[in-house]
Structures are given as C-alpha cells and as structure tokens.
Simulated assay, not measured.
Amino acid sequence: MNKWTLAVLYAATVCGISSIYAPQPLLPVLAAHFGVTEATTSLVVTATMLPLGLAPLAYGFFLDAVPAKPLIAVSLALLACCTACLCLAPDFTWFLADRVAMGLLVPALLTALMTYLATTASAATLRRVMAVYIAVTVFGGFFGRFFSGLSAQFLGWRIPFACLAVCLGVCAALCTLLPPDGRAAFSPIRLAHAPQVLRKPGFAAAYLVVGLLFFVFSGMLNLLPFRLGRLEGGYSPLRAGAMYSGYLMGIIACLTSHRFARPLGGPTRTMALGAGLVIAAVAVFSLPSQAALFCSVFVLCSGMFLAHSVAPGVLNGAEKEHKGLVNGLYISFYYSGGALGAYLPGFALDRYGFGAAAGMLALAAVAATLVAARLDVRAFSGDAAAK
C-alpha cells in the first residue's frame, strides 16, 4: 500500500470522525438558536453515536457482498450531502433527523475503511497501519471539535459544517481513484455465536468496562461546553473548542500503552489504571474552575485511551475463532455506552443540576474501575497462560 493511498484513507477517516463530533462544542449555540433545552440539544451527538453501537452487528446481515472501495466513496459522498444539509436545517427536528441519517452512514464508512486497510496492507505492515489508524481516529475526534469551535467563533455555527461537507466531498472523489481492495466483500457476523463469546471468562466484564468508560467519556465531553458557561469567563465556541486539546493525549496513550502494560503487570491492569484515571478526571472536572476543566480533559483522555488501546488485544488474544464477532461486540458496547453517556448526564444536568450529572459520571467511572480490577485476578488467566 503506497503513501498516497494511506494519506487518502487517513484523511477520509479524519473527516468521517470529525462529522460525528463537530457539533459538540457548539451545543449551547445550537440550543439558543433552535430554542431547545440542553438535554434535547445533546441528542445531536447521541443520534449519530447510537447507530455506531448497533451497526457492527446489524450491518453484517446486508454488507456481505459489498466491496470496501465503492462503499467508502459512496458513504463519504452521502455524508457530505448530509453535513451540508445541517447548514440549511429550518428547525431542530430537521437538524436532528439529518444527524440520524449521518449516524447510519458513519458506521458503513468506518467499517469499510478498516476492512480496506486490513485487507490491502501487507502482513509485515498491518500492525503499524492499524496502530496509525487508531491514532488518526483520535486526532479526528480532536480536530472535529477544535475546528468547529474555532470557525464558529468568527464565522458562525454553519461554517464548520459547510467546510466539513466540502472536505468529505473531496475525499469521496479521491477515494474513487484508489486501487481495488484485497478482498471482495465483508465477512458476515454470526449473532448465533454471541452468547458463546459473552460466556467466556472475563469477556462480558471487559465489554462492560469499555461501555462504562465511554459513557463517562462522552458524558464529560458533552457537558463540557455547558459547564464552561457556568464558570467565570463564560462560554464561547473558540474557548470550548480549545478545551478539547487534552484529546491529543489519546494519541500518545494509544501509541505508548503497550509499553506500559508489561511493567504494570499486564493489559488488564493497564485497563484498571486507565479506569482509575477516569475517576480522577471526573473529580477534577467537578472543580469550579476553567483551568481545572481544561486539565480534566487531559486526564480523561489519558485514562480512556490507555484502557481502550489495550482492551481489543486482550479480547482478540483470548478468542481464536470468532474474531469478527468479538470486535463487533466490542464496538457495539463501546458506542452504546457513548450514546447513553451523550444524553443521560445532560438530562440529569437539565433536571437536577450539575451535581447530579457529575455524580452519575463518577458512579459509572467507579463501577468501571471495580470491574476492571476484578479482571486482573479472575479473567483471562487460562488464555494468558496459553499465550
């Protein structure tokens, strides 16, 4: 796989991930513009994230015969159209419906991108290519948030979506020039094997850990612009976008986590450490200071991606037969937790105040840490020994 192909695929990944998170720093602006509550506005993130929790399993039934290359181009083109339509939404209902449509397209795009990379890269470069892909997805999460806050500050909330639509369209055109992918179609996911996978020692617990952690992660980052507005200095789109700078710690965590796993005593202990850092992040996030808010994102992303970067390896290393299903379940638990986290803490904030929202996040973080700590002692021991 040449450098030009990788550059196009990684650019498409950044644009696709950015389309999920671009509205997040603009939630107070959107709430004021459309005249809806904070909790209702949070649905624009949930609406796009929820299909990501369901699609890895549901898509397996009808993507069996779809080659990766055309699916990438078509998904990008449709996503560009939907993103452009956000600028024209006459009311919140239309805006939310458009975000739901985007949520149905993003899983197809990301599934196709991962499949293309996995089947086109050589065996010698596959691990490096996929490691960079994960780092690129993290960068896309930061870039979408920061760029939307920066451009909205000076040009209005519609401009970020218009620019992103153009970028998605350019990526769609470039992807039509890619060489054919190495495999003709996707491998179907057999849901009949799901109970067998979930019954394996430690699997359900590991899935629960990542779901809870992404619940906290999404909840904190969704609450961030509203929390910012309640602190001295106030809210602005640019200030909110800059607050997500800590997201870049995720890139460092993803690329270095495996170096920490051995001295920490193994990957499951690394997951427990990551979960513990998430508890600390919620505590710092709760302090009434913009400086604390800024620092909390660095701690949150360090912990979240420390756990996230090692968890798939633990699960794949312990399951030899149904790797597609293992990864499909992982993504489903991950994004289902994120979809709930994007809405429920905002609902608590709207009804009961910040203390209730922060308490919900803290409980989820503590639960994730306790479950992860049990993994250290009881789970994967036979598989780890065999390995």
Rank of each mutant, 00 (worst) to 15 (best):
M360Y: 00
G234F: 09
L113Q: 09
V36Y: 04
A342W: 06
P263T: 01
Y59W: 13
A77Y: 00
R239T: 11
R127E: 13
P201V: 09
A73G: 02
I134N: 08
F298A: 13
A362E: 07
L293R: 01
A84K: 09
T270L: 14
D64N: 14
A318Y: 10
S296G: 12
S18C: 06
I17N: 05
A384S: 13
F154I: 06
T270V: 04
L375C: 14
G276I: 03
C175F: 15
A55K: 06
T369W: 12
M271P: 00
G337R: 10
A97T: 02
V278I: 03
A342V: 01
S42A: 15
Y330W: 04
A362P: 01
P107R: 06
S75P: 04
T48Y: 07
T137A: 11
G276S: 03
L113H: 12
S336K: 04
A384N: 05
L177T: 11
A123E: 14
F347H: 12
G265W: 04
C295W: 15
K320E: 15
P28I: 08
I159A: 09
T120F: 01
A342Y: 07
P263S: 10
L224R: 02
A89T: 03
L287T: 14
L208P: 02
Q290T: 12
P201E: 00
K320F: 04
V136T: 12
L26H: 04
A367L: 12
S381Q: 14
R145M: 02
L174F: 08
F285M: 07
F380M: 11
P51H: 14
L43W: 13
A185P: 02
G53N: 06
A384H: 05
T83H: 05
R128C: 07
V132F: 12
F203D: 06
Y334N: 07
L155M: 07
I189W: 10
T125V: 10
R127L: 11
D383G: 08
Y133N: 08
